[in-house]
C-alpha cells in the first residue's frame, strides 16, 4: 500500500518555481532517500508533505486521502518530522522535550501519568539514550540531539518519519549510529522513512529506493543500485565522479576526490 503518493505537485515561492510537477510514491515500510544539489527543493518537498508549507498545486495523498483533508493533529499521528539542525537550543530537559512531543495524543485535561513516564523510558532506550533523561537539551551534542529527535518521533507514534539531513554535522561514529537506529526501526517496526541526505553513498547503501531532485523536478526515482551510474550522477550534480564497486555489496559507490 502507498503511504505517500505525490502526483504532479508544484510549489512556487515569489516568482520562482521550487517544485515542478513532482510525482512519486512511497510504500508502507519503505526506506526512501531523497538526494539532490542544494536548492533542489528537497526540504520544500518534506515541508509540503508535513503541511508546514501550504498552497502548492497538484496532489499529495497520505494513506489514500488528500493531505489537505487532515487536521494537523491527525496528520501528526501518522507523520513526524525531524528538521535540519539549525543550532537552536530548546529550554527543556530531554524528558520534558519528549513528553511535549506526545502532543497529538494529548487533550487540554491530560495529566502526565506513570504510563507516559514509562513510554519516555522506552523510546530513550530504543535510541540508546536512557542516561540522558534528565539532561538539558541545550547541553547535548549534535549527535545526541538527533537521537533525541528520533525518540520524540517515536513517542509521537508516527508511522512515517520525515528526516531532513539527519546526519549533517555528525562525526562518522554518530552518523553510523543514527543510520543503524533508523534502519532498525524501519525493519522491526515497519516505519516508513523518507530521509533527505547529501551523503549519496550511505543513501544508496541504506535505502530501498532513491529519489533524485534537480531544480524542483524528479531526475530519478527508483532502485538504489540502478542510480549509481556515471551519467545519472553527472546530470544530478554537473560533475564527474570516481566510482568503485563496494566490496561487500553489489553496488557502485563514490570515491572521495583526491584534489592535488
Amino acid at each position: 500500500m502507498n503511504v505517500i503518493e505525490v502526483k504532479g505537485f508544484s510549489y512556487s515561492f515569489g516568482n520562482g518555481d521550487i517544485l515542478r510537477s513532482v510525482t512519486f510514491s512511497v510504500k508502507e515500510g519503505e526506506y526512501l532517500s531523497i538526494i539532490g544539489p542544494n536548492g533542489a527543493g528537497k526540504t520544500t518537498l518534506l515541508k509540503n508533505i508535513m503541511r508546514i508549507l501550504k498552497g502548492g498545486r497538484g496532489s499529495i495523498k497520505v494513506k489514500d486521502a488528500e493531505v489537505v483533508g487532515y487536521s494537523q493533529r491527525e496528520l501528526a499521528r501518522i507523520i513526524s518530522y525531524v528538521p535540519q539542525a539549525d543550532g537552536r537550543s530548546y529550554p527543556f530537559e530531554v524528558r520534558e522535550f519528549i513528553l511535549i512531543s506526545k502532543y497529538p495524543h494529548l487533550n487540554p485535561f491530560s495529566k502526565i501519568t506513570g504510563r507516559d513516564e514509562k513510554e519516555v523510558d522506552e523510546v530513550l532506550e530504543s535510541v540508546h539514550m536512557s542516561r540522558f533523561k534528565n539532561r538539558a537539551m541545550a547541553a547535548l551534542s549534535s549527535g545526541e540531539r538527533q537521537k533525541i529527535m528520533i525518540a520524540a518521533s517515536l513517542v509521537q507514534k508516527a508511522e512515517v518519519f520525515l528526516l531532513d539531513e539527519p546526519t549533517t554535522f555528525l562525526d562518522p561514529r554518530h552518523e553510523e549510529e543514527i543510520y543503524r537506529i533508523l534502519k532498525k526501526l524501519n525493519r522491526e517496526r515497519n516505519i516508513t522513512v523518507l530521509a533527505v541526505t547529501h551523503n549519496v553513498n550511505s543513501a544508496v547503501l541504506l535505502s530501498d529506493r532513491v529519489l533524485a531532485l534537480k531544480n524542483g523536478s524528479v531526475l530519478y526515482c527508483g532502485d538504489s543500485g540502478g542510480f549509481m551510474e556515471q551519467n545519472n550522477l553527472r546530470s544530478l550534480y554537473d560533475k564527474e565522479f570516481e566510482l568503485m564497486r563496494h566490496p561487500k555489496k553489489d553496488i557502485n559507490v563514490i570515491l572521495p576526490e583526491a584534489i592535488p
Binding site: 508535513m50 503541511r51 494537523q72 518530522y81 529550554p91 512531543s101
Partner: peptide
C-alpha cells in the same frame, strides 16, 4: 500549556507535532 510548550520549539516543529 501544551501548545505554549510547542511554540517554544519553533514553528516548524510545533506544526509537525500537530499544532495549527
Amino acid at each position: 500549556r501544551n501548545e505554549l510548550n510547542l511554540m517554544l520549539l519553533g514553528e516548524d516543529l510545533a506544526i509537525s507535532r500537530g499544532l495549527n
